[in-house]
Structures are given as structure tokens and as C-alpha cells.
């Protein structure tokens, strides 16, 4: 952290270059962040990266916020802010412009068709995301059981998901899932 301005620039360059290629959520650029942080810039060890990944998964907010912890390790608090602004800025601007365009065509026939047509397609894609999460997270019979019970509970009852999550967390902490 001796060369403050220099490392801030490096942090900005690393994350800004990933912003517009992060299609499909933050996890797609995770391998790239790992390569930059551990191998190329050597801001942290492999183990540290794995640990901050676990921390950022557990903390609330989008998973790409791991960027802020990488930036923090590289260049302190300023590094954290630079990292998060760099990885979110370009993509957010693009999304904003897209939204403006979308609003402008509110009454266009293609937009009505797009909204009606994309809804069922999106529904199928939502099931796909669910299956992806299950495949990447569940490796034990207990984990699968938790997933199924939670799914049924949330569809069939008005129970608060927070309560369900807390319950599952307790099972995990007791070592029953892993």
C-alpha cells in the first residue's frame, strides 16, 4: 500500500475492465477477479480469496460486492470504494440508458409483444436459475432435503423466509449439512 495512487489506478483498471463483460451476474467474472487479485497483482493469497468469498456470500447484497473486499486489501478504504464504483459504474450506466429507451417505447407494439412474450420465457429461465443454484450449492442429501422443504414451505405457506433461512443456518452451524 506504499504507492497509494498507483494501486488505486490498478484497482480501477482491473474492475472497470470487467464491468461490461459481467453478463449473467457477478459470478461470471469471479475467475477473472481471482486471477487478477491472487496471481497477477498478488494482493492476497488463494486462501484469503476463498475466505473473503465466503464472507461476501454470507453478507447481504449482490455477490459481486466481493470486489470491494479485494479493493480494500489492495488499497484500503479508498480502494474498496474505487473497486465497487469501477465494477458497477459502466454496466449501470448502460442499463440506465437501456431503461430510458424502454420507457420511451411504452406504447410501441413491439414492446407490448416483447413484454407479453418474454414473460413465459423468463419463467422458464427462473426455473433454470433455481436449478443452477441447487447444482452448485447442494452436495449432500441433507442439503437437498432442506432445499425441497424450503421450496414447498415458501410456495404453500405464508411463513417468513427469514425464519426459514435462520433455521437452515442453525442446521448448518450444527454441522448437519456439510
Amino acid at each position: 500500500m506504499s504507492d497509494g495512487a498507483g494501486s488505486l489506478l490498478t484497482v480501477a483498471a482491473v474492475f472497470a475492465s470487467l464491468s461490461l463483460v459481467s453478463i449473467g451476474g457477478g459470478n461470471t467474472v469471479l475467475p477473472e477477479i481471482h486471477r487478477a487479485a491472487v496471481q497477477r497483482e498478488q494482493w492476497m493469497t488463494d486462501q484469503q480469496f476463498a475466505d473473503i468469498y465466503a464472507i461476501s456470500e454470507a453478507a447481504p447484497g449482490p455477490s459481486s460486492m466481493i470486489s470491494s473486499l479485494v479493493g480494500y486489501k489492495a488499497a484500503g478504504l479508498a480502494g474498496a470504494l474505487v473497486a465497487i464504483v469501477s465494477i458497477l459504474g459502466p454496466s449501470s450506466l448502460l442499463m440506465y440508458v437501456a431503461c430510458l429507451t424502454w420507457e420511451r417505447f411504452r406504447t410501441a407494439k413491439w414492446r407490448i409483444a416483447f413484454e407479453r412474450g418474454l414473460a413465459p420465457v423468463s419463467l422458464g429461465l427462473l426455473f433454470s436459475s433455481g436449478v443452477t443454484v441447487v447444482r452448485s450449492s447442494d452436495h449432500t442429501a441433507v442439503a437437498y432435503a432442506i432445499t425441497i422443504v424450503v421450496m414447498v414451505l415458501l410456495v404453500r405457506s405464508k411463513i417468513s423466509p427469514l425464519l426459514v433461512m435462520a433455521g437452515a443456518g442453525v442446521l448448518g452451524a450444527l454441522g448437519l449439512v456439510g
Binding site: A58, T147, V150, A168, G169, G172, L176
Partner: peptide, 14 residues
Amino acid sequence: ATLSGVVAAAAGMA
């Protein structure tokens, strides 16, 4: 460990 339980529940929620 805690996370493994929460993540399994989050999958159910998804």
C-alpha cells in the same frame, strides 16, 4: 458451516 445451510435454503427459495 452456517452458510451451507443458508445456501441450501436460498436454493429452495429460488
